[in-house]
């Protein structure tokens, strides 16, 4: 048994090696570089000039607006996506005729076949002056401005991230034992009470997974605010693009990045602790 254990260990190591190397080269090392840069100084012509200073971190308040936007619109966008995705997932998992289920599921994914960039670009026209506002003018409502508002960014977010929220919820609703719903009804639970007491609690693993996916990606989002926020509603992602590519202030960009990572680590671990507790040790609790 000892021999086979040993060879098993080698096999495990060999199988894990590619991932580990990739992980170290593409994630750990860059993170260390960023961390080191964040304590350095900007070279006169842009880039990194070495040294050790806390100046970059002291300068963080100058990007307060980007942090504020991200920290409000990312959670709001997650919540809004959840509110739109849940009824859709519920319908797909529990209500729709089996015959149409697959087709409808494919329709949810179809938008992914086109680049998010192109699809978000389309929203510029829909929300822009010659889009919905011009239609509203036809019925006498004038002066409505949609594009370049937080609302436009939220619409883009919900549109872009919906499938990521729909699928985990769909899966948890689909594997929900339907006899539990009948049992609730049999015991006197009205449809609404059954939904609140059985369906929602038992779909929480899917909700938690979906929210986590969307929230994490939203924290680093830059495309949607860049297009639909028009420089008025910008995220940390936009600030980073600006710092690294435009003003070439790498150390300050690095400091902003490190701060973003820290904020994300804190919120995600708080969130995981919360969802894990509400599922007290059930094996299917999360992801």
């Amino acid at each position: 048994m000892k021999v086979s254990n040993k060879s098993n260990r080698w096999l495990t190591a060999a199988l894990l090696a590619p991932t580990s190397v990739w992980f170290v080269l593409m994630l750990i090392l860059p993170l260390i570089v960023i961390l080191v840069f964040s304590f350095g100084e900007r070279a006169a012509v842009g880039g990194y000039a070495g040294g050790f200073t806390l100046e970059q971190y002291a300068n963080l308040p100058s990007r307060l607006k980007a942090f504020q936007n991200t920290m409000t619109i990312a959670p709001a966008g997650t919540l809004l996506s959840l509110l739109v995705a849940y009824p859709l997932a519920y319908y797909l998992a529990l209500r729709v005729d089996r015959k149409y289920k697959l087709i409808l599921l494919v329709l949810v994914i179809v938008p992914f076949w086109t680049s998010l960039l192109v699809r978000t670009y389309a929203w510029i026209f829909i929300l822009g002056g010659r889009g919905i506002p011009s239609l509203l003018e036809l019925i006498g409502i004038e002066g409505v401005r949609l594009i370049n508002t937080p609302g436009a960014v939220l619409v883009g977010i919900v549109y872009g991230y919906l499938p990521l929220m729909v699928f985990p919820i769909f899966v948890s609703l689909e594997k929900l034992d339907k006899s539990l719903l009948e049992a609730s009804s049999d015991l006197g639970g009205s449809p609404l009470k059954t939904f609140m007491q059985i369906t929602i609690p038992l779909s929480m693993p899917g909700v938690a997974t979906g929210c986590m996916l969307v929230f994490i990606l939203l924290m680093g989002e830059f495309l949607i605010p860049a297009f639909l926020g028009g420089g008025k509603v910008f995220f940390i992602g936009n600030a980073l693009v600006d710092l690294f590519l435009q003003s070439r202030n790498w150390p300050f960009g690095a400091a902003v990045s490190v701060t973003l990572v820290v904020i994300m680590l804190i919120t995600v671990s708080l969130y995981m602790r919360m969802t894990l507790r509400s599922n007290t040790g059930r094996d299917e609790s999360l992801m």
Partner: peptide, 9 residues
């Protein structure tokens, strides 16, 4: 119910 359908949560 046949499989009891007890509420797991």
């Amino acid at each position: 119910f046949q499989q009891y359908a007890l509420f797991p949560h």
